[in-house]
Amino acid sequence: MEWIDKYLEHVRVERRLAPRTVELYAFHLRALSDHAAEANLPLDRVQTAHIRRWMAQLHSAGREPRGIALVLSCWRSFYRWLGHEGLIGFNPVQDVHAPKAGRPLPKALGVDDAVRLAELYDPEADPWTESRDGAIVEMLYGCGLRVSELTGLDAQASATARGWIDLDAMEAHVLGKGSKRRSVPVGSKAAEALRDWLAVRGERQEPALFVSARGARMSSQAVWKLLRERSLKAGLAAPVHPHMLRHSFASHVLQSSSDLRAVQELLGHANIATTQVYTRLDFQHLAKVYDAAHPRAKARPDKDGK
C-alpha cells in the first residue's frame, strides 16, 4: 500500500486532481491491491493476464463497460507512474481495454401509452392548435417519420416541394436522409386527423402542411415542444420527443408483423443493420409477456443483479 499512498499523494499535490477523483482512485487502487493479495502477488509482479482476468470478473459481475474503462484508466495511470519512478519495467494495463459498450436500445412507448397520446383531446385548448397537434402526433406515430421529414411536408405536390401528402392515395412522399425519397402509407386514423386539420388550416400562401399560428412552416423545435407538453397532458411517465414516436412506430409494427424488411423500407434505413435494433426491443416485449404469463417463468434480474 506504500506505493499506492505515494501515488495518491502525487495525483493530489502534483496533478491537483479533484478530491472526489482522488477518492475514486483510492477506491479502485484498493481493489487492485486486494486482487493482487488474493493471487499472492506483489503489485510489481502483476501481469497483463491477471489484469484481463480481473476485468472479466468485473464484467461478469455486471459492471458496465464505461465503469470498467474508468477502473482500467486508474490502474493504467498508476502503473505508468510506477514506470516513471523506475519501480517497474512495463505497464501490465497498457494493452488491456474495456469491452465495447452495447448499442443503447431506442426509447419507445408501449402501445397503450402511444394510443393514449394519439387520442388525447383537450376541449379547453384552441381548436385550431388542437387539430394541428393531433395530426402531427398521428403522422409521427402512424407513419414513423423523422421530425425533419414531417416539417418538410407540403399540403400539396409541387415542383419545389421536399415532401407532400396525397390523401387520395393515402400516402406521404418524404425526403429522407441523403436526399432519398420514399413513399409511406398513411393509416386511416392519420388520414382522418389530416382531413380535420386541413379543414381548419384554410387557404394559405405558405405551402407547408404544418404551420405555426403566425403562418410560417413549423420548426423541429416547435414540434419537440408541443410533444413534450402534450405527453404531460396525457399523463405519460416521461416527456415524449419525435424520435420516440418513430421508435414506437417501428417497434409496434415489428411486434405485429415480424417483417424486418418492411420496417426497413417504411423507416427509410439504407442498411438493415440499423433496423435490427428493433428486434431487441421486440424481444424485450416478448420477454415481458413471457415473465407475466408463463407459470414457470422467472423474473429477470435488473442491471444491478437484483
Rank of each mutant, 00 (worst) to 15 (best):
Arg103Asn: 15
Ser188Val: 11
Met218Thr: 02
Ala118Asp: 07
Val174Phe: 06
Leu198Lys: 06
Ser179Gln: 11
Ala135Arg: 11
Ala190Cys: 08
Leu120Pro: 11
Thr129Gly: 03
Asp113Ser: 13
Asp168Ile: 08
Ala169Ser: 12
Gly142Pro: 09
Gly202Ile: 13
Ala190Leu: 09
Gly163Pro: 08
Cys143Asn: 02
Ala190Phe: 04
Gln221Met: 03
Glu192Ile: 00
Ser179Lys: 13
Lys189Trp: 07
Ile165Gln: 08
Asp166Ile: 04
Ile136Val: 14
Arg146Asp: 00
Trp164Asn: 11
Ser148Ile: 06
Phe210Ser: 03
Ile136Met: 10
His173Glu: 00
Ala169Tyr: 08
Glu203Val: 13
Ile136His: 01
Ala199Asn: 07
Tyr141His: 13
Ser183Ala: 13
Met218Gln: 01
Phe210Val: 00
Ser131His: 02
Glu124Arg: 11
Val200Leu: 03
Met139Cys: 14
Asp168Arg: 08
Ala193Thr: 01
Gln221Tyr: 00
Arg103Glu: 15
Ala135Gln: 06
Lys189Ala: 11
Ala191Lys: 06
Gly110Gln: 11
Glu206Leu: 13
Pro106Trp: 07
Ser179Ala: 14
Pro106Glu: 05
Pro123Ser: 08
Arg195Met: 12
Lys107Trp: 01
Arg201Tyr: 06
Ala155Ile: 09
Tyr141Leu: 14
Ala118Tyr: 10
Arg182His: 07
Gln205Trp: 02
Gly110Ala: 15
Pro185Trp: 09
Ala172Met: 06
Val137Thr: 14
Leu105Met: 09
Ala161His: 14
Gly152Arg: 00
Asp166Tyr: 07
Val147Gln: 03
Pro127His: 05
Leu198Ile: 06
Ala159Lys: 14
Ser158Asn: 11
Arg214Leu: 10
Pro207Thr: 13
Ser179Glu: 10
Glu171Leu: 15
Gly163His: 02
Leu167Asp: 07
Arg217Cys: 04
Ala157Phe: 13
Gly152Ile: 00
Asp168Ala: 13
Met218Pro: 03
Phe210Leu: 04
Arg162Thr: 12
Ala191Leu: 04
Val115Asp: 09
Ala199Phe: 05
Ala191Val: 01
